[in-house]
């Protein structure tokens, strides 16, 4: 630990069985608020996401895709139903153990990058590798997203696309089993977005990381192995794609 300050760690969730599917959901429901103000974000979702796939979650705003991603990422608890990551039931974990789950297994990429503004690109990546079990060197992670020359730049000195690629480097540097991306190209123009998607595809292909990408952009779905369509808190359709295209073929 940096600074010699060791936080109390919760016991590590057991998620060692790589043969199990990456995620399994059973009748997952999420309700916000109560009474008249009640919002049912997820209305009993059951699905299985196999290991190593590139999965795109499609749907309108409020369709429940972000809520599901948050639950899969250990950021939120479902109101009812059960969720497994491999053979570990996430819905049985408390906050402390969910923190450890995120730390050990999950990489996040957000629409607005969420980089630490006071840290350089290299330091933002190192922030995560310092607490990871088997990280790659921060420089390698940055090289994977094509940013080896920009390591010492602060977020404010980088373009939006570069910032998002730093965020991807930060997410993959710990060699996570799953990479969860919420609108990773939502704030980017087409050309920059494609570069970010290339980076995600490379990670999925080269590291075998199960990658879930939320998007509004149906074109992006064409690069996925599996596409899950959401509407009104339900999964409307799960389609597999035998021949995903390359990100460079996508435009918007």
């Amino acid at each position: 630990m940096p600074l010699g300050l060791t936080a109390r760690r919760a016991a590590r969730p057991d998620a060692s069985d790589p043969a199990a599917p990456a995620f399994r959901c059973e009748e997952v429901t999420k309700t916000y608020g109560a009474g008249e103000a009640e919002v049912r974000a997820l209305r009993g979702i059951s699905l299985v996401i196999p290991n190593g796939e590139m999965v795109v979650l499609l749907g309108a705003s409020g369709s429940g895709k972000s809520t599901l991603l948050n639950i899969l990422g250990g950021l939120d608890h479902p109101t009812a139903g059960r969720v497994w990551f491999r053979n570990q039931e996430l819905t049985a974990l408390d906050d402390g153990r969910l923190t450890v789950y995120r730390r050990d297994h999950v990489g996040f990429v957000f629409q607005f990058y969420n980089l630490v503004p006071s840290l350089t690109a290299w330091e933002n990546v190192a922030l995560v590798t310092e607490i990871a079990r088997t990280p790659m060197p921060p420089a390698d992670a940055l090289a994977l997203v094509g940013l080896d020359a920009r390591q010492d730049h602060l977020p404010a000195q980088l373009s939006g696309g570069e910032q998002q690629r730093v965020a991807i480097a930060r997410a993959i540097a710990k060699r996570p089993e799953v990479l969860l991306c919420d609108e990773p190209t939502g704030a980017l123009d087409s050309k920059t977005g494609v570069r970010v998607l290339e980076a995600l595809a490379a990670v999925n292909r080269d590291l075998g990381t199960t990658t879930l990408v939320i998007t509004h952009n149906a074109d992006i779905a064409r690069m996925a192995d599996r596409v899950i369509r959401f509407a009104d808190g339900h999964v409307r359709e799960v389609a597999t794609n035998a021949d995903p295209i390359r990100p460079t073929e996508i435009t918007w």
Binding site: A7, T99, D104, V106, V116, P117
Partner: peptide, 15 residues
């Protein structure tokens, strides 16, 4: 916002 981001990345409340 920054602190919450760190929590998402897997840092504990204590850290």
């Amino acid at each position: 916002r920054e602190l919450a981001s760190l929590r998402v990345l897997g840092f504990t409340k204590g850290e």
